[in-house]
Design a protein around this nucleic acid. Structure first.
Lengths: 224, 224
DNA sequence: GTCTATAGTCGGATAGAC
DNA sequence: GTCTATCCGACTATAGAC
């Protein structure tokens, strides 16, 4: 959301630094990453980092913005579509279907999109220990995605979107998806898998949608 | 589980280093932590770290063992109790009740035990990027806790404990709890809270147990 | 915009006195 | 077992030529 689009076709030094920064910051964390490693992987000069980004921290924040942009590109088509149709969702089936579309898309990204591998660790660290980068991530897509899920869940259980009960239920819904990412090492080990390959997508998402429906039915119509 | 018990009453240099290491490794990550910072906080000499633990990495692994021990102390009473009663759980109600006890205890630890704050970030990093410390954590309590939940969930839905469907459902159950820790920053912000204080324990755990029951009912008796 | 060279700081580990 | 002193490598940032 700055002036440049590293996702575009260009391959300037700035873009290569951003790509290398994304990979190495994601893998090693802020402190575990040296600007030398980034410059080397980008095939750029060490001094190019202070020049283009003002320093290591500036590059880190630029990487966070880049991640936010890419997640936005992936999620926003579906989010916008649901937002636009929100006023016409009068039947429970339509509301449920909209929620399913959001959950499906989110799960596809979090669990099965290989690109996510790079973003996930960085976002997790920002959740555990927020820095300025968290504001970038939260303000860009997290807020909008969360509000949308809250709104739909709230309608389905007959509560306001900002009712604590609604938000808690929306949270557990998202948690069922995210655990495949955040407890990845333990989950894969228990399943005897080495990665979440495409053949697992249908059974996992089926289970998630079934659980979402079950949890919502369990909380429907118990307005305080 | 080594030779010493830092949880005991002693306060040797070794114990103080372990406590300081737990706090700072947890807060700043392995690379973000300097042995100088640990030694200072422990009121110990820098050279005491190579002396007692062989170096920074040895201290980190000792911290992981310490965490595993403490989590074990918190969880194992309940896990053992359920394990022991496993053969006599013939009614669905008894099985469900046992699962509730595990979920409740796990949630109390993960979400509401303030001590967990220190462990959580370290464990999360090990999930995203396992090192030798992950083996220590997984082998000590994760495996046992997971097997227990798999076993109970499997019985309740009429499948084997290692059936993928069983493991997936157990995973989503754990995910509903862990999200309060792993997406902490975003969840608190959406709820307008600043921490999970004790007054929130009952409503959150009630919702979790209700969701667990609902998900299990949704998957009951659809044996392949 | 990109390079080399270097300044200045901080990291972990060790030697050796006590 | 605990200390001081120190080595040496790695880090980020900057100066200044091109």
């Amino acid at each position: 959301m700055t002036q440049s689009e590293p996702s575009g076709g260009t391959d300037s030094t700035r873009d290569r630094l951003l790509r290398a920064g994304l990979r190495i910051f994601g893998e090693c964390g802020y402190n575990g990453t040296s600007t030398r490693a980034i410059a080397t992987e980008a095939g750029a000069n060490l001094a190019a980092i202070p020049y283009h980004f003002g320093g290591k921290e500036g590059l880190y924040l630029a990487v966070a913005e880049d991640i936010a942009d890419r997640i936005g590109e992936f999620l926003l088509p579906v989010v916008s579509e649901v937002e636009a149709s929100l006023d016409t969702l009068d039947s429970r089936e339509a509301q449920r279907d909209a929620l399913h579309r959001l959950v499906r898309r989110f799960a596809q990204m979090v669990i099965f999109n290989p690109e996510t591998e790079l973003w996930a660790a960085l976002i997790q660290r920002e959740q555990a220990r927020p820095t300025a980068a968290f504001e970038i991530l939260y303000g860009s897509f997290m807020r909008r995605m969360s509000r949308m899920i809250d709104t739909l869940v709230g309608r389905l259980i007959g509560r306001a979107p900002d009712d604590p009960q609604t938000v808690l239920l929306a949270t557990t819904t998202i948690g069922q998806i995210m655990v495949f990412r955040t407890a990845r090492a333990a989950v894969l080990r228990r399943l005897g898998w080495t990665s979440y390959d495409a053949s697992k997508e249908a059974p996992i998402i089926d289970m998630l949608l079934r659980n979402v429906d079950a949890c919502i039915d369990a909380h429907e119509g118990d307005a305080s």
